[in-house]
Design a protein around this nucleic acid. Sequence first.
DNA 1: ACTTGGCACTCAGGGGCAAGGAGTGCCAGT
DNA 2: ACTGGCACTCCTTGCCCCTGAGTGCCAAGT
Lengths: 337, 337
Amino acid sequence: MLDDRKLAVLRAIVEDYVSTNEPVGSKALVERHSLGVSPATIRNDMAVLEEQGYITQPHTSAGRVPTDKGYRLFVDRLSTIKPLSAAERRAIETFLNGAYDLDDVVSRTVRLLAQLTRQVAVVQYPSLSRSAVRHVELVPVADQRLLLVLITNTGRVEQRVIETPAPVSEESVAHLRALLNTCLDGCRLAEAPGAVADLPEQVPPDDRPVAATVLSVLLETLVEKHEEKIVFAGAANLAHVDFSQSLREVLEALEEQVVLMRLLGEAGDSSSLTVRIGTENPHEGLRSTSVVAAGYGVGDQALARLGVLGPTRMDYPGTMGAVRAVARYVGQILAGS
Amino acid sequence: MLDDRKLAVLRAIVEDYVSTNEPVGSKALVERHSLGVSPATIRNDMAVLEEQGYITQPHTSAGRVPTDKGYRLFVDRLSTIKPLSAAERRAIETFLNGAYDLDDVVSRTVRLLAQLTRQVAVVQYPSLSRSAVRHVELVPVADQRLLLVLITNTGRVEQRVIETPAPVSEESVAHLRALLNTCLDGCRLAEAPGAVADLPEQVPPDDRPVAATVLSVLLETLVEKHEEKIVFAGAANLAHVDFSQSLREVLEALEEQVVLMRLLGEAGDSSSLTVRIGTENPHEGLRSTSVVAAGYGVGDQALARLGVLGPTRMDYPGTMGAVRAVARYVGQILAGS
DNA sequence: ACTTGGCACTCAGGGGCAAGGAGTGCCAGT
DNA sequence: ACTGGCACTCCTTGCCCCTGAGTGCCAAGT
């Protein structure tokens, strides 16, 4: 029902509109792309495309603008992900290689991605529950206070201060620490509750209340909290775009952790690259923005996601290329550290 | 040279302009404020105020608008800091009391301040070099790898992985850890280099290379890095303000850590409340914004600063009240934890 | 020496109007 | 099935004029 030329017309409309930000007319199209037919023919094709809902005109006697549905078709069938230039690859490498801890990796990544795409970048911290334990440390800091430090294989470090119900001896702490490490070493955090289930039994009866407290804090830290740590950068890039809706709504959405989380979507396997266009987004205030997101992680399994948010009128092939490249590279960095 | 009535006129102009965002004329002034004189008189006063540079008119036949100099006079001599309402105080308390670690305190604070003032809030993490050591932990995580964890009296936790030049025994680590804690306990980080200067001499010769490595990493962590960790929130509040300059410039400035740091100014004593108006700001892109900032900390000494950025046309008394209240409260929270 | 009312002047903002131009839909011809 | 021609729509721009808010100045009053 849509022959090749109509698809080519749609592609041309998307490309022109993205680069000029102005409704594109039939005459301009034949001039800028060598379609080999006359404007009138294009007009007929456009009428069909409009009827099917792929494009629309802001008002009679204006050119055409792609609809969300039009962008969707473009992304799915009419475009290919554009690989980064050599210079861009080098930039990623040099910029990310300087990072010295997880915080630094994430903050560099988000700034890099924002700069690369000239849009708003969003990066989720590696999910705790999908990471594995590298080391658990238990340090007495006061009479009835322990510091719990948890280090994951993604370099993430969590700490919590624990108030113990009773004073604990150095030896008890050492014993508990050893037990914890034995139970948990290399264990995925999501499986931690199971791994420590029978731990209390291995503790001397006197220390059981303390052990219970420590365990409950530990599990709470892993499961409940921080699952949703997420940052963004590049808000300045929104400023020169004129949204149909208010810029304020978009900024507000960006400052809500929960919204950001849902925006990136669920982490699937590492290589998944997803595009959400306009109203496909799960948030009201982002009706006129699109999100390009990818999972990243150390192996096949994605630990978390990162992506880019911009106007629906964005350069999808280029953005997808950048997001994919950065996601891969961050994965390598995390694996290597 | 400026009699009482002229000052009253200036105050009225500032207040009206802040609330209406429109140049204020002589007639409107006498109507809204009971000045007891006629518009013509006010006009004469205005002419004087304009000549002296406190107000200006966007164009002939428009009302007057305060200049930076006018706001400065207003802040210095014509206004008093407005205390928060009981409801606002309660809001601060309940919102901040739920925090469970430093990250959480800071992120809650910045969001709270943004909401309270309806502007952009900026909060600097407690400066490392001004904090004191509460505990140093040294954990072997692999054959030639140690994890260094540093806990400060502000609840800040820093960690670094250290590659040692040679394998280290458990005992050596324990010994080194004990030494470090003896030297550093309660010590201000800024004084740490002095405190550990003679530490290598107390280490057995075999362990000296390792000790040296650990020390260099420790000092590097304290001094070099992280000094400038800083966050902001509430960018959405900028959206409905129309800046004379581009919004983009402001957003860009906000995303530069260095600029933010200079914006808040140097931490002085705890109670200092500073206001920077328009061109008094050290950054080009922020010519038409003002910053209200205060130090916060556990004792008299400020550990860091926090503040608010908004258009020069802001409610100074209210903003100053909010910033001061939040700064005090955060200090209490940190001291108590 | 201030203060005041009166008055002429300035200028941004908005409505109305016409010209220009980009783009469309439709139709008849090839 | 494509194309050229043509009438039509309607946004945009520029222009003009008017209105209203606000000013500066002056002369008179206290």
